[in-house]
Simulated assay, not measured.
Amino acid sequence: MVSDTHGDKQILRMIAKQQQPDADGYFYCGDSELPADDEIFETYQPVTGNMDFDPAFPLTRTADFPGLKVFMTHGHRFNVNWTLDVLIQAGREAHADLVLFGHTHQLGVEQHDHMIVLNPGSISQPRGEFAPLHGTYATVDFDDKTITVQFHTRDGQVVDKLTRTFTR
């Protein structure tokens, strides 16, 4: 999953085609600044961000994989700059195993009652402690017992010290 490219469509192509070509799903957590009918969204499942002005983008999205339910939003309408409580409640109401969001431009992952809440960070305009990585995206692997999150730099390198495996 990727978030907050702010017009950098080329990085989305690169991630999908060169760095993560075998993913089961590609999620875009908002702020592309592209139209909803852009061809890149034939690959990525997007939601709207506060810098997306095409009303065709959905505010939230859910996706089901065998053994995993995903809930995604950008986060600007869920108060994520101040608390994750509203987002966590929305994830619970969606019966999600994995909640994806962006907006803050800061990567992070944590577990709440067996639900993983994940912000991949901004691939183009990172902020916070991990801004020196110059942009990140995340991948998720799961089975019936664990969910593993890896953060990657723009060139696809795994940031090993940030890898987390959670028990389901």
Rank of each mutant, 00 (worst) to 15 (best):
residue 137 Y to F: 15
residue 147 I to H: 08
residue 127 R to S: 02
residue 110 E to L: 13
residue 55 P to F: 03
residue 132 P to T: 03
residue 35 P to F: 13
residue 110 E to R: 05
residue 73 T to E: 04
residue 142 F to A: 05
residue 101 F to T: 06
residue 149 V to R: 03
residue 109 V to M: 11
residue 144 D to M: 04
residue 150 Q to V: 01
residue 125 Q to A: 08
residue 111 Q to I: 07
residue 137 Y to C: 10
residue 126 P to W: 12
residue 105 H to P: 01
residue 132 P to W: 14
residue 52 D to P: 09
residue 46 P to N: 09
residue 135 G to P: 01
residue 120 P to N: 08
residue 38 D to I: 12
residue 61 R to M: 10
residue 47 V to L: 06
residue 134 H to K: 15
residue 55 P to V: 01
residue 100 L to A: 12
residue 151 F to G: 11
residue 128 G to V: 05
residue 44 Y to T: 07
residue 135 G to L: 06
residue 68 L to I: 14
residue 98 L to M: 08
residue 38 D to F: 12
residue 74 H to T: 07
residue 108 G to P: 06
residue 146 T to Q: 11
residue 39 E to W: 10
residue 138 A to S: 14
residue 134 H to P: 00
residue 95 H to Q: 12
residue 146 T to K: 15
residue 40 I to Y: 09
residue 89 Q to M: 04
residue 137 Y to K: 03
residue 65 F to R: 00
residue 100 L to N: 10
residue 51 M to H: 10
residue 135 G to M: 07
residue 41 F to T: 14
residue 134 H to A: 14
residue 89 Q to P: 01
residue 85 D to G: 02
residue 74 H to P: 04
residue 141 D to L: 11
residue 59 L to M: 11
residue 131 A to E: 09
residue 129 E to N: 08
residue 60 T to W: 00
residue 81 N to I: 01
residue 76 H to C: 10
residue 152 H to N: 02
residue 36 A to Q: 08
residue 50 N to S: 04
residue 139 T to E: 02
residue 118 L to V: 07
residue 51 M to G: 09
residue 102 G to M: 04
residue 144 D to K: 12
residue 35 P to R: 09
residue 127 R to F: 05
residue 71 F to W: 07
residue 104 T to N: 05
residue 68 L to H: 13
residue 94 A to W: 00
residue 109 V to R: 05
residue 96 A to P: 03
residue 86 V to S: 01
residue 114 H to Q: 10
residue 133 L to M: 08
residue 141 D to V: 14
residue 127 R to A: 03
residue 83 T to V: 02
residue 52 D to S: 06
residue 129 E to K: 13
residue 104 T to M: 04
residue 68 L to S: 10
residue 113 D to N: 15
residue 42 E to H: 07
residue 94 A to M: 02
residue 123 I to E: 02
residue 75 G to H: 06
residue 140 V to Q: 14
residue 38 D to Q: 09
residue 76 H to V: 13
residue 34 L to N: 04
residue 141 D to I: 05
residue 64 D to T: 15
residue 152 H to R: 02
residue 107 L to M: 14
residue 108 G to Q: 05
residue 147 I to F: 03
residue 102 G to Y: 02
residue 130 F to K: 11
residue 71 F to L: 12
residue 125 Q to Y: 15
residue 93 E to N: 14
residue 66 P to G: 06
residue 126 P to S: 04
residue 148 T to W: 03
residue 52 D to C: 08
residue 128 G to Q: 07
residue 75 G to R: 02
residue 37 D to Q: 11
residue 65 F to Y: 00
residue 51 M to T: 12
residue 108 G to N: 06
residue 120 P to M: 15
residue 36 A to W: 01
residue 103 H to L: 00
residue 133 L to D: 10
residue 45 Q to R: 08
residue 45 Q to Y: 13
residue 37 D to P: 01
residue 45 Q to I: 06
residue 52 D to K: 13
residue 45 Q to E: 11
residue 151 F to V: 06
residue 77 R to N: 15
residue 151 F to N: 06
residue 91 G to F: 00
